[in-house]
């Protein structure tokens, strides 16, 4: 690059220059990048520790230039609680899928949120278990075919998909909770803003923050990448409405 040119788009410093293991059309990569950009923008990379889940997101630590812990399945909020409590100077975030957060780790996320732990959770909801091969998740849509709901999710037996953002928003403890999606450029910009806000609340020592991100899983949905983006919008989004569900500021106004 000479003096007359300058880069307007580069890889975030918080993101390693490596190829990810994600399938074509999966939106994990986009979400990773948004988090990395936010860490760069706040200049907090050097004091950030991420907590990886079990699921496709487990290898997030291979893609980030930050310290990382690898949690047992669903327990990331407990690890984040432990670390943040003894080292409050750190910025701690968990990155969890829907099997991890909404099924096996339900107790941990609810109680971490209820204690008002000052860390951030990026909750990636793609309505299925990805890494284990496409089994039904608590977030799987009614009628959705998965390897363990081969005739479609039967709500009589399995209940309806859990809306985690709404559920967590019922807690009295102040928190920042927003649901976003990453299936269009416009939504990606909104998602970035939400993630930024979530980290801002943590930097300010204000509250627990969680951003639920509607994401795709073309491989296990059995759709092409394009069809997947469409399915997210047509099938998931009406059931999982986007928006801010809770802010600490609203709590203070009460």
């Amino acid at each position: 690059m000479n003096e007359s040119t300058h880069a307007i788009f580069t890889r975030p410093q918080s993101f390693r220059d490596v190829v990810t293991h994600y399938c074509p059309g999966c939106t994990h990569g986009v979400i990773h990048r948004l988090v990395a950009e936010v860490l760069d923008e706040f200049g907090i990379r050097g004091r950030t520790v991420g907590v990886a889940p079990v699921g496709c997101g487990v290898f997030i630590y291979n893609y980030f230039q930050t310290d990382f812990l690898e949690a047992p399945h669903g327990r990331a909020p407990a690890l984040a609680t432990g670390l943040k409590r003894v080292s409050p100077e750190l910025i701690v975030f968990t990155y969890q899928g829907d099997g991890d957060l909404a099924s096996i780790g339900t107790a941990e996320i609810i109680h971490a949120a209820n204690r008002g732990e000052k860390f951030t959770t990026i909750f990636v909801n793609n309505a299925i278990y990805g890494m284990t091969g496409g089994q039904m998740a608590p977030t799987t849509m009614p009628g959705q075919i998965t390897t363990t709901s081969p005739r479609g999710r039967n709500v009589e037996e399995c209940g309806y998909p859990i809306r985690m953002a709404e559920l967590l928003s019922t807690l009295r403890t102040p928190a920042y909770i927003e649901r976003v999606a990453v299936h269009t450029p416009q939504n990606i910009v909104r998602a970035k803003k939400a993630i930024r806000k979530a980290f801002q609340y943590q930097i300010d020592g204000k509250c627990f923050s969680l951003v639920e991100v509607l994401s795709t899983c073309p491989t296990n949905w059995g759709l092409t990448p394009n069809e997947s983006l469409n399915w997210l919008e047509k099938t998931m989004q009406p059931y999982y409405p986007l928006g801010v569900f809770k802010t600490p500021d609203a709590e203070e106004q009460k």
């Binding site: 690890l79 984040a80 432990g82 670390l83």
Partner: peptide, 26 residues
């Protein structure tokens, strides 16, 4: 110091995991 009453012993074990990663005695 820090005292946290967890929601379960499952959470306790994992809080210890996160906390001990800081290098402090927990």
């Amino acid at each position: 110091g820090v005292f946290v009453q967890a929601e379960s012993e499952v959470a306790v074990g994992n809080m210890l995991f996160g906390a001990v990663a800081s290098g402090k005695r927990v």
